[in-house]
């Protein structure tokens, strides 16, 4: 079954208590093969980048088996506010 944008978003919100999630299907023909996500969660606070990415990878472990390419950006709510105001 193809992975959907909603499926990824819902899982990140539910499991990582993400307050904001952007999911973009970046495959050329939107064939659900590659995704780019932005995840904003307070669970990232105090964690280095590698650990944040691992949290996302673990959360989406099942989905990642089907996805060919995966880009991610992980921000804390504070970083997210700062980025928005720039």
């Amino acid at each position: 079954m193809a992975i959907t944008v909603d499926q990824i978003r819902d899982k990140l919100i539910k499991e990582l208590a993400a307050v904001h999630v952007d999911v973009e299907d970046t495959s050329p023909n939107r064939c659900a093969a590659s995704y780019k996500v932005l995840v904003v969660s307070s669970q990232f606070e105090g964690k280095p980048l590698l650990q944040r990415h691992r949290l996302v990878n673990t959360c989406l472990a099942e989905e990642l088996k089907e996805i060919h390419a995966f880009e991610q950006k992980t921000l804390t709510p504070e970083q997210w506010e700062k980025q928005k105001s720039q």
Partner: peptide, 9 residues
Amino acid sequence: VGGCDILLQ
């Protein structure tokens, strides 16, 4: 260290 995203950041 990480993958492409991490190295880029």
